[in-house]
């Protein structure tokens, strides 16, 4: 099965603006879905330099960009992507 890729930016700005908190996400995710999600670190996605991207912290869930990310926002985005995968398959 295709996995959902989650990249959490750990650059200075994102980390300070709440990214540090996002690193507990693998504990918040339903264990049954944990296998279908791949977490990737990103040392800096370079998104904070352009205001049109929104506010840090930034997380990418597949191609979908989550700005001003919180655990709930990221979890929602992951669930949404998971649903789409299930629809397709």
């Amino acid at each position: 099965m295709k996995k959902v890729t989650v990249s959490i930016c750990t650059g200075t700005t994102c980390y300070l603006m709440g990214g540090a908190h996002l690193l507990t996400i693998n504990e918040r995710l339903d264990p049954s879905t944990l296998d279908s999600v791949e977490f990737k670190g990103a040392h800096c996605l370079g998104l904070c330099s352009n205001e049109s991207n929104g506010k840090p912290p930034f997380v990418k869930v597949n191609e979908h960009l989550v700005s001003d990310a919180t655990l709930n926002k990221v979890l929602d985005a992951i669930r949404k992507e998971l649903k789409e995968i299930q629809h397709v398959s």
Partner: peptide, 18 residues
């Protein structure tokens, strides 16, 4: 290529290493 080890130092109050 850069890879980041997201969870290794997460309790450290500092961003992880790559």
């Amino acid at each position: 290529e850069i890879t980041t080890d997201l969870f290794r130092f997460r309790r450290s109050n500092l961003p992880p290493i790559s």
